[in-house]
């Protein structure tokens, strides 16, 4: 993982981190004045220098029009799945028989970038009945409240494929 991070120049990673943090700070403050800028710049720079290998939202982001479209569609899918996930969970916990069939299945991702994998793992944790437990390279171990297929291919198609399509374009 360290070796992979080194492929992107250090200075660029620090710059991306700094810009993201500063933008976040300015949005949080809701106004752009000299004192706000100075404090924000100092804090952002310190954090960016202390954690140069850290991930931020735009790390490894491909700034192409296609990536933006994929990003929008990704969030559309994501929120749909999040609502579905909550409704299904509510049905499960409210039904007297508690119809669960839990288990941990193994799935494989084709995503290469660290940020892409992070987003995938996070998305899995927020979609119907699945929770990422452990990650090893391209393998993800996912806890599933109602296991539908126990083999790698079936589970991958069921859990990963939907998000991977978009994340592939956004982060690679």
């Amino acid at each position: 993982m360290v070796a992979k991070g080194e492929t992107i120049p250090r200075i660029r990673r620090v710059a991306v981190m700094f810009a993201t943090l500063l933008l976040f700070w300015l949005m949080l403050m809701g106004r752009v004045t000299v004192d706000v800028l100075i404090v924000g710049a100092m804090a952002s720079l310190a954090i960016a220098l202390l954690f140069p290998s850290g991930l931020s939202f735009f790390t490894e982001f491909r700034a192409t029009p296609k990536a933006f479209v994929a990003g929008l569609r990704y969030y559309g899918l994501f929120f749909k799945e999040l609502v579905k996930s909550n409704l299904r969970l509510a049905t499960i916990v409210l039904s007297p028989s508690l119809p669960i069939k839990p288990g941990i299945v193994k799935v494989r991702t084709t995503l290469k970038s660290r940020m892409g994998r992070l987003m995938l793992a996070n998305s899995i944790s927020l979609t119907p009945g699945t929770l990422t437990v452990e990650m090893e390279g391209e393998w993800l171990y996912v806890h599933w409240v109602s296991v539908e297929s126990t083999d790698v291919e079936g589970a991958t198609a069921e859990i990963v494929a939907g998000f991977e399509r978009y994340l592939e374009v956004i982060y690679g």
Partner: peptide, 9 residues
């Protein structure tokens, strides 16, 4: 839980 069907990990 006892209902668990599989644990690949």
């Amino acid at each position: 839980a006892p209902q668990t069907v599989i644990d690949r990990l």
